[in-house]
Design a protein around this nucleic acid. Structure first.
Length: 945
DNA sequence: GTAATCACG
DNA sequence: GACGTACGTGATTACG
């Protein structure tokens, strides 16, 4: 240990820790750890001790301190309360599990051999200010460990602040960033702007921005107040003149005392060696294993082996499903075979039939399943035993021969299909694919319907939803440590990227065969895990059957009215042009209406509108809620921009884009559904996304008019009514709500009636609307802030509503707490059908991350169960509608299915679709609330609602 | 490539 | 005494 420096001088580094401030932040930022011996809450103490240790070691990019002290608040009553009795009056009591940690933190400080300093009648900030000034006067360097903005007035060339939790260094520059002025003006800014946290009044209506502006012009607060009557802006002038006293009082409150008659001198803070016995006793008492190990390692005593790292705290639970695969995975690509003659192909088909399990992978010329042509087929029957059967490769273009070099020798496609068919259709041979929906879609168009099949992507999904994605490359690397050849490595990238039919066979074979090889190995690895993790039923009943169903839907596609969409595009373009002219007039300048950046600059910088907020990147926020507020306040431009955006969205995302997505061969639009993309079990749709076609506005619904049925046909839309709320009522056992669903009453009105004591007959739409928002909020894992923002009420009101809801619907609170507890203990939550949704970050050190994870945990079983029901319905649907001539399922939109059927058969279709959907949960789960499906038929999607 | 915005359930 | 917040998606556009 270092030789002690006796007195403070210009070589000293004085570190002053804002102990009280730190405790609160550590408490909120760290997981609620408890002492192993008796369950005493010690999260804040743990965080604090870790920080002390790091600081004394000279980490956080700081040199080791020569002088060190931790400063605490002695009591809540200080001289400031004498000046202003409301000072910090709005401060709430510290949480219950924090209170016992206050004395422990002082113990920790002493255990590390550091002075714990406090003084009756003064805040920690005043003591810090006093010591900092003393040290600065002696030429020493000072670091204040705090993020409290009240301390920023102390920052100087010599004095810096350090926020250890964010590792953020605060110097003069950062102070200017925050207050708009250097440290010496901070107290004046605070005096004007006030502070809701400390309940400093300030001057009402003046915030940090305005305060900085005024002080730039007038220098000091006193000068500003003296010249208040000269201020040109009426509002500011009057506010300042009326609140002079308040401003001066506020200044007094925010000014830190730098001349406290302190008991201990700076020299008492010299860093020395801690008493090892005391320190270890304390660490043991607290059961800090990791920190003990670290301290021991630092002091050179004993081993650290076998002890957990500190970073283990807060890491998600590792699922056994994600354990590494066999360590000795060897890929021998030399053994892959390129099959170019019938005899060899027959041989491989024979091997497949004998093996009983064969991995199948299809190579095509496009990622778009609905447009792709078959280029080759791969089979794998055992590790390293895989072949590639090229079927559609064209001549190599390497020779530059414009007539095309001769295509390589290949089995004619028809011939190959004929030979492969018995294998692909063999009931006794399991076909294994990765993302098999894609392959099935292409196969279907060649008259091939492989069955039975397994899909390794879906197996992985059932095992690890929410933990990672389920693409083959990721799975291979994760489980085998093997990185398959990447497509771009053989095909290049960008404009010059080749399609697979242009790849030479000696390059194509190892790439293609490897995919089948990997797929088969993944199957062997994942299959036993399904049972071990108790998700076999989930996979078998809700995942496995879907690829074939979705492949058919995608292949069939949906008809859109090209002429109608083009007409809409024209109309939208015209509206946009008109709004642009209007906007340029209002703004007095031309600008890019599509640029949020420019909009922000025009509205807030040039026009100087109030109410602007910055995003975390420092740009002005220009989202709907911001612009809507401005528009409500009577501004014309924001409304114009919003209208323009509406048309722009409709045109670029829908009317323009959909026309381009029409398949040239079928004349229809073919989306692609993802089965393993979401964390809850929902599907997603892309290229194009047909799950977000407008419906909420009249203009938007015009897009839906363009989704039409084939001549002589109609579209049938069937959707589950309130499915998520019904599931909530079931899982949380909400008696009132269950009864309401059983009786078929309006559920939002019922909620409103319960909460606001309004009889159903006297219900207004306003009250019902609020209740509806609360119902949704509950499903989303409600927060007072979120609810407040959504229905534009105060946070306090929102909290009251939530409290009321919990009272009126007992069961909700229990459901939430149980769900969160399961997420914490297992790392996942389960739907009533047994699907596991893994929740990342549920034990994160950061309280925001944790809160987010908790909301996810609450929502996932509800959204997930609704998805489960829909999946079950979809799997049964082909069989169910087979009795209705010409009926096709086209689309799924989470709680809605869309069908196309000959006009005369619409009623018959509805007759089978409705019960299939309504009974989809059976027999697995008998939901204690009826599921209700509404179905309508019409010529277009809009009218089918 | 990321961030902002906005369409849906 | 701090800091952002409802859950789940995908497409488009601007901008570095």
């Amino acid at each position: 240990m270092s030789v002690a420096i006796k007195t403070v001088d210009e070589n000293s580094h004085v570190v002053l820790v804002d102990g009280s401030g730190y405790i609160f932040r550590a408490y909120h930022a760290l997981p609620p750890l408890t002492r192993k011996t008796d369950g005493l809450p010690i999260g804040a103490v743990a965080g604090f001790s870790n920080m002390l240790f790091k600081l004394l070691q000279g980490q956080n990019n700081e040199s080791r301190p020569t002088h060190f002290a931790v400063i605490f608040d002695a009591s809540s009553q200080t001289f400031r309360n004498d000046i202003y009795d409301l000072y910090k009056a709005n401060r709430s009591e510290p949480p219950e599990d924090l209170r016992p940690q206050f004395p422990l933190v002082r113990d920790a400080t002493r255990a590390f051999g550091a002075p714990a300093v406090e003084m009756e009648g003064f805040e920690a900030d005043d003591l810090i200010a006093t010591y900092a000034k003393q040290a600065e006067a002696l030429g020493a360097r000072v670091t204040i460990i705090s993020s409290d903005k009240d301390l920023m007035q102390l920052v100087s060339e010599k004095v810096r602040m350090l926020d250890t939790m964010k590792n953020k260094d605060i110097g003069i520059e950062q102070v200017i960033e925050k207050f708009g002025l250097p440290p010496e003006s901070v107290i004046d800014v605070q005096a004007l702007a006030g502070d809701s946290v400390d309940n400093i009044p300030g001057v009402p209506g003046i915030g940090v921005k305005t305060a900085a502006l005024l002080l730039t012009q007038y220098g000091t607060l006193e000068n500003l107040l003296d010249h208040a009557e000269e201020i040109p802006q009426k509002g500011r002038r009057e506010k300042l003149m009326a609140n002079k006293e308040m401003a001066l009082l506020s200044k007094e409150l925010v000014t830190l005392k730098t001349d406290v008659d302190v008991d201990e001198s700076l020299d008492d803070f010299v860093v020395g060696d801690p008493d090892v016995d005391v320190l270890f006793d304390f660490l043991e008492l607290m059961t800090f294993r990791t920190l003990t190990a670290r301290v021991r390692a630092q002091l050179g005593e004993g081993e650290t082996d076998g002890l957990r790292r500190d970073d283990d705290v807060g890491r998600g639970v590792e699922s056994p499903a994600e354990a590494r695969g066999p360590a000795n995975v060897i890929f021998n690509k030399e053994k892959y075979v390129c099959v170019q003659d019938v005899e060899t192909l027959n041989h491989w088909v024979q091997r497949g039939l004998e093996a009983g399990v064969v991995a199948v992978d299809l190579e095509t010329d496009s990622l778009d399943s609905a447009a792709a042509k078959m280029v080759g087929v791969c089979l794998a029957v055992a590790d390293n035993e895989a072949c590639y059967i090229p079927l559609g490769h064209v001549g190599a273009d390497g020779g530059g021969d414009m007539f095309g070099a001769d295509a390589p020798k290949q089995i004619p496609l028809n011939e190959a299909v004929r030979i492969l068919k018995p294998l692909l259709h063999a009931k006794g041979v399991l076909k294994v694919g990765q993302n098999f929906k894609y392959d099935l879609g292409v196969f279907q168009r060649y008259g091939l319907y492989p069955a039975p099949y397994d899909d390794t992507m879906l197996m992985s999904y059932a095992l690890g939803m929410g933990l990672h994605n389920h693409g083959m490359d990721a799975l291979s690397e994760m489980h085998f440590g093997h990185k398959p050849i990447a497509f771009k490595d053989i095909a290049g990238t960008g404009k010059s990227q080749k399609t697979f039919d242009q790849i030479e066979l000696d390059v194509a074979t190892p790439y293609a065969a490897e995919d089948a090889d990997v797929t088969l190995r993944l199957w062997k690895f994942l299959k036993p895990k399904l049972a071990a993790e108790h998700v076999s039923t989930v996979y078998e009943t809700m995942d496995r059957g879907l690829p074939a169903v979705l492949a058919q839907m995608e292949n069939h596609g949906v008809k859109v009215d090209r002429a109608e969409l083009s007409r809409l595009s024209g109309m939208f373009a015209q509206k946009m042009a008109e709004l642009e002219d209007e906007a340029y007039n209002l703004a007095g300048a031309k600008f890019n209406m599509g640029s949020p950046k420019q909009i922000g600059e025009i509205l807030f910088d040039q026009m100087g509108l109030e109410g602007g907020k910055k995003t975390k990147t420092g740009a002005w926020q220009t989202g709907v809620d911001v612009l809507e507020k401005l528009a409500d306040a009577g501004e014309a431009l924001p409304r114009t921009i919003l209208d323009w955006r509406g048309y722009s969205k409709l045109k670029s995302t829908y009317s323009d884009a959909l026309v381009q997505q029409i398949n040239a061969d079928t004349g229809r639009v073919h989306t692609s559904f993802s089965l393993a993309a979401t964390t809850t079990g929902r599907l997603s749709s892309s290229d194009p996304n047909l799950q977000n076609i407008p419906i909420r506005t009249e203009e938007g619904r015009k897009i839906r008019d363009a989704f039409v049925a084939e001549t002589g046909h109609v579209l049938v839309a069937a959707d589950y009514s309130q499915i998520e709320l019904r599931i909530l009522a079931h899982v949380a056992d909400l008696m009132t709500m269950k009864q309401a669903f059983a009786d078929g009453v309006d559920i939002h009105a019922l909620t409103a009636s319960e909460m606001f004591n309004v009889p159903l007959e006297e219900m207004t739409s306003e009250i019902r609307r609020n209740a509806k928002a609360i119902n949704f909020g509950i499903i989303y894992g409600i927060s007072a802030f979120g609810l407040a923002k959504n229905i534009d009420i105060s946070r306090t009101e929102a909290s009251d509503y939530i409290k009321k809801y919990f009272e009126k619907f007992p069961g909700i609170k229990d459901y939430m707490e149980e769900t969160k507890a399961q997420a914490r203990e297992e790392g996942y939550v389960k739907t009533i059908f047994g699907r596991k949704c893994h929740i990342k970050g549920i034990a994160d050190r950061n309280q925001m991350m944790r809160a987010f994870a908790e909301r996810q945990a609450i929502n996932a079983p509800i959204q997930g169960a609704a998805s489960d029901i829909m999946r079950r319905a979809m799997i049964r649907m082909p069989e169910a509608i087979s009795s209705v001539e010409g009926a096709r399922m086209l689309l799924q939109v989470h709680d809605e299915l869309v069908f196309e059927v000959p006009e005369g058969n619409a009623a018959a279709l509805i007759g089978v679709v409705k019960p299939t959907m309504e009974n989809a949960a059976m027999p697995a789960v008998d939901i204690s609330v009826p599921l209700v499906v509404e179905a309508h038929a019409a010529k277009n999607w809009n009218d089918a609602h």
